[in-house]
Design a protein around this nucleic acid. Sequence first.
DNA 1: TTCATTTCTTGAAGTAGTTCAAGTTTTTTC
DNA 2: GAAAAAACTTGAACTACTTCAAGAAATGAA
Lengths: 190, 190
Amino acid sequence: MSESLLKHIQRKTELSALEEEKLLSKIKYRTLKKKEQLLKEGEVCDFFCFIEKGCCRIYLINEKGNEQTLQFGIEDWWIVDYMSYNTEKPSAFYIQAIENSEVLIIPKKELEQLFKEIPKLERYFRIVLQKTFAATQMRIKFLFTMSAEERYLHFKNAQPEFVQRVPQYMLASYLDFSAEFMSKIRAGKI
Amino acid sequence: MSESLLKHIQRKTELSALEEEKLLSKIKYRTLKKKEQLLKEGEVCDFFCFIEKGCCRIYLINEKGNEQTLQFGIEDWWIVDYMSYNTEKPSAFYIQAIENSEVLIIPKKELEQLFKEIPKLERYFRIVLQKTFAATQMRIKFLFTMSAEERYLHFKNAQPEFVQRVPQYMLASYLDFSAEFMSKIRAGKI
DNA sequence: TTCATTTCTTGAAGTAGTTCAAGTTTTTTC
DNA sequence: GAAAAAACTTGAACTACTTCAAGAAATGAA
């Protein structure tokens, strides 16, 4: 428990044994059952969440009552509503486990303190965010330039295991088309 | 010159006079004429660019030969192709000045060295990236949930000065619809 | 102050998707 | 292992946009 986070950090920067201990003392381990919600619309996202095992997503519910997935997260990813975290205003999103999952939670108050005590953590998160943002710039490129079918094929090609792991209707909404259209694409009816 | 960057950093963390000096010695000041390109598709984005004055954008040219704007940047914003920066692979994008602009360039080699010498810079960029990514999460929400007209009205309401400042066809592509459709929205023909 | 270039506008025709409704299959639960 | 719930499929009707083509207006350059 928490081993995977320490390893992930160690890949980007080095923490002393004391720093590791300090960090671990502030982390809450939590298990989530499939469909369990870690954050609901209207609540403030006052934590960072690291996925040790399993799979989660950020999604919203639109005017028509349909869910739209903004981001998936699997092992070794952070999943956070950064707008809510930064501003401490209510979130527009839900964070939910798609599979039974094990996550690590660092409350904002503790994390901000940790940044002061362990400056190397700044480096770790700077690198994580830089990587995440790079992926998001590319995602916008794909949304802008590819048709629905192209986005599906591209995703399937880039993340074949992942396509098996999540319901197709969630993947459809992540790729910004309807569940019905996903069915037609997969059946080759497009 | 470079005053605005130091101020921007000072708002998020404190640098000593020595650290400021070290940083400034690695920064290149550059002016860009309207339409001048700082990065072209196929080149590696091996720098961070800070806009002191003016307005720039990241865009791509799609299959049909049309430009699509991925991001605008104005005073006090960083504009970087993070995927190309991180991987050192050729960029899929162009970075271009929309107005005559003054920018600060930090080459990757220097910046990575600066991170080691001035750990507080990690904090500064962690905070900048966290804010940028928060804005991008919201942008995806808007792209997912709003109609073309709603996206235009929302943007106009949130950034009224900005709508005056850039050609409407660039804004249309940023909001992910055609220049012709922008015309119709503005004429109230929708 | 004219010519060239860039930007914006308009309408008509086309299309890549959505929506709806109903049925089928798969997975979960007790 | 039966019932309930969740996920997927299908076709028909619709719509929010795009594309094309041509002209008008605004801006920039000599």
